[in-house]
Write a protein that binds this DNA or RNA. Structure first.
Lengths: 215, 215
DNA sequence: CAAATAGTGTCTCTAAGACATTATACT
DNA sequence: AGTATAATGTCTTAGAGACACTATTTG
């Protein structure tokens, strides 16, 4: 009566490269779709993983060699139509990382020019991107696409690239200041062309993410 | 290697009774926790259910005798700690219904006075309530707690009861009008004490739900 | 000094919020 | 007429948005 279905976790690993959101894909080492580019994923290992998030974390560590600063459950995709082997479940997660922490293993693909992907991975990526774009307008999510320390201008560029709109500098800074989830890195400034900029980092404890609704 | 875990769907069936959100619970007919009040739930039936949403719909129909106007996936709760039988997965859903469509079978419990529930059902209910309260501030969700046709005053009361705050009548109506997802039921008015009120219903096709962020 | 980027200040105008007024039923 | 509720209008004010200005570096 139980006929337990195939149970996996899949991860949409997103990063910002050349000003555009990219998703990290890996070549599948096993059938079905052996050799195709697909989301990093794998079976849940009941003996090792205490829960689904832990399974996702393990998959990312083992297969993509990444420990992301932000990882969250996205949605569960389940049904008879998504895997040729039969009824299956994928507990999908999404993660944000700075490009630099990705090694050479994953292939980065712009999310707005997705190729055909195996299973329903195309739909999973779309759902994740939609979620990230939506949530970015009222949360600190885009911070996790940057290195641990960054300037406010870099942060604004990141928000703009994720949201796909231009933001007003003065207003953007007002809001970020209100949320006060950032702190100055004392004495640290960016190099570069014009006036050096103060570097900021996410305030230690403070892992709050959701704020007033609109950037 | 696959060791597929126990796979179930659970449903948080919410309604408004006496001005407060209530969750519908059923007595468990099987071990573990036989006889305890718990969320309507059951195994996924790969042969019958095309996907998880269909499984949730079937469970609600079979066990609670309800076909809810609004049903959505909430989150997946999985891990080794939630079921004495071992590693398990619950694809949790939540549904909103008008109190009248619930028969005598389910026990209604106020969500703010939850008793101890088996498994992690307490946490699941909390997550659902949090989601509904949050989403209600920028969506049409509360509509589904009302009968198919209702007055704007009743709708405002519903929003106020779900959100737990008082809303300004004039402003509330402005916003609802902007969204224009309701239509007047021609010639239909409420009875009662004072001036009769126009009855409204959700515009047929229009199943849009998310709008500007704030009621 | 010019160019480039960082950082702050000010003005306007929309829209949220509070409140008042009119409308229509029943007793 | 008095009461109760519906429906709409008006005024004030906070805040979003647009823009300008100042500050600090490099070449």
């Amino acid at each position: 009566m139980t006929e337990a279905p195939i149970t996996t976790v899949d991860c949409v690993l997103l990063t910002l490269r050349a000003g555009a959101l990219h998703v990290a894909l890996l070549r599948r080492e096993a059938a079905p779709f052996k050799g195709a580019l697909a989301l990093p994923g794998g079976y849940v290992h009941p003996a090792e993983d205490v829960d689904a998030l832990a399974a996702a974390r393990r998959v990312l560590r083992e297969k993509a060699d990444v420990v992301p600063p932000y990882l969250e459950q996205l949605c569960t995709f389940a049904g008879s139509g998504r895997d040729p082997r039969g009824w299956s479940i994928s507990i999908a997660h999404y993660a944000l990382v700075h490009e630099a922490v990705l090694g050479a293993r994953p292939t980065l693909v712009p999310v707005d020019e997705l190729p055909q992907l195996p299973f329903d991975h195309g739909r999973i990526v779309e759902t994740a991107v939609h979620r990230v774009r939506d949530k970015s307008s009222y949360s600190t999510l885009p911070c996790y696409l940057l290195p641990p320390t960054f300037t406010l201008s870099a942060l604004q560029r990141t928000y703009e690239q994720v949201l796909g709109v231009a933001l007003d500098k003065s207003q953007f800074r007002r809001r970020i200041a209100e949320w006060s989830f950032l702190e100055e890195v004392p004495g640290a400034f960016s190099a570069g062309k014009g006036r050096p900029a103060q570097l900021y980092r996410i305030r230690p404890r403070q892992r709050l993410e959701l704020f007033d609704r609109t950037v």
